[in-house]
């Protein structure tokens, strides 16, 4: 039976609650940097959204309390490295809110996923800051030091696993020698997977997008892996590395920019999955979720108009 939701804000809150588990896992591995980025992002979004709502002559309080801007900020904050300098998230969230959302007419009118638009903007503009991840747990003091650049401390940092795969492949004969095991990423992905299952259970999101998304990744990665086991990443690594689960349950399912017909959601999700594997394997960037989502956002109007469900009596 169809559930009846009390408000759009309630739905947004559910998504935010569902993120908690994944965020806590990330905190467990990487420490305070994660939370610091989220706080910075949320504060920025509140300020930017309020200013723009006021400029556009809208009701600031009622619009900002719908929770969509906060959700955008959190999604972006957990997508970027937790040791990125403070201005990265500030710039990214501002771009996401202003160019990704408000300039299109605010909530409900944006063709692109704002968080991913912000992410791609950052990735292209600040590649260095966007590709340096730390390895250890950071205390609050350390995190503040790093993010606000207060003193010169050395954090053991490095690239992500997907980065390593991309760059390391030229040095070794087979992908198997790289040591693909990454417990932290696997656990974080598991956290988001559980959060996503909660959303499915509450029917806040429909099953089609995440299922098709994961199916797209599994199918295309199996095909690639089967063609050459030395060159291509195995399926389980595709599923448990990078932002796969976050993408499947929280990013691709953004209702505003996703396809809205039952059949369309399957096509949309599946093609995102396929594009992710293609970008990860052949593209210039280690992870491709943001690009894949934005590319498919562009295809949504077309998909929607070709996948109208059957109407009674027609």
């Amino acid at each position: 039976m169809t559930p009846i939701f009390s408000s759009t804000s309630w739905m947004m809150r559910q998504v935010i609650y569902a993120l908690v588990l994944g965020v806590m896992t990330a905190y467990y591995f990487f420490g305070w940097g994660v939370l610091l980025q989220i706080i910075l992002g949320v504060v920025t979004t509140m300020v930017v959204e309020s200013v723009f709502l006021a400029l556009r002559g809208r009701y600031v309080i009622s619009s900002i309390s719908d929770g969509s801007a906060v959700l955008t900020a959190i999604l972006l904050a957990i997508s970027i490295p937790s040791i990125a300098p403070w201005w990265v998230i500030v710039v990214g969230v501002s771009f996401a809110i202003i160019f990704g959302k408000q300039l299109y007419g605010g909530l409900g009118n944006n063709p692109f996923n704002p968080a991913m638009l912000g992410y791609v903007f950052l990735l292209i503009s600040y590649p260095l800051q966007m590709s340096t991840w730390q390895v250890d747990f950071l205390s609050l003091g350390q995190a503040l030091d790093v993010v606000f650049d207060l003193s010169n401390i050395d954090v053991i940092s490095g690239a992500t696993k997907l980065d390593e795969v991309k760059n390391g492949l030229s040095l070794v004969g087979s992908i198997q020698q790289l040591g693909l095991h990454s417990p932290s990423q696997a656990w974080i992905n598991a956290g988001f997977l559980l959060g996503g299952l909660y959303l499915l259970l509450r029917k806040v999101i429909f099953w089609q997008i995440p299922v098709a998304f994961l199916a797209g990744i599994v199918l295309s990665s199996i095909l690639l892996f089967a063609s050459n086991t030395d060159l291509y990443l195995p399926t389980q690594n595709h599923l448990m590395l990078g932002g796969t689960m976050l993408g499947a349950f929280f990013i691709a399912t953004d209702p505003v920019s996703a396809s809205t017909t039952p059949g369309g959601r399957i096509i949309y999700g599946f093609l995102i999955g396929v594009l992710i594997v293609i970008i990860r394997t052949f593209g210039g960037y280690p992870d491709g979720i943001a690009f894949a989502v934005l590319l498919m956002n562009m295809a949504v109007p077309l998909i929607d108009s070709f996948t109208q469900p059957k109407v009674f009596g027609r």
């Binding site: 169809t2 559930p3 939701f5 408000s7 759009t8 719908d66 909530l107 409900g108 039952p262 469900p309």
Partner: peptide
């Protein structure tokens, strides 16, 4: 509030 195209309507 604004329509977020959540699709609850097309379900019912």
């Amino acid at each position: 509030q604004e329509c977020i195209r959540c699709g609850q309507c097309s379900e019912v």
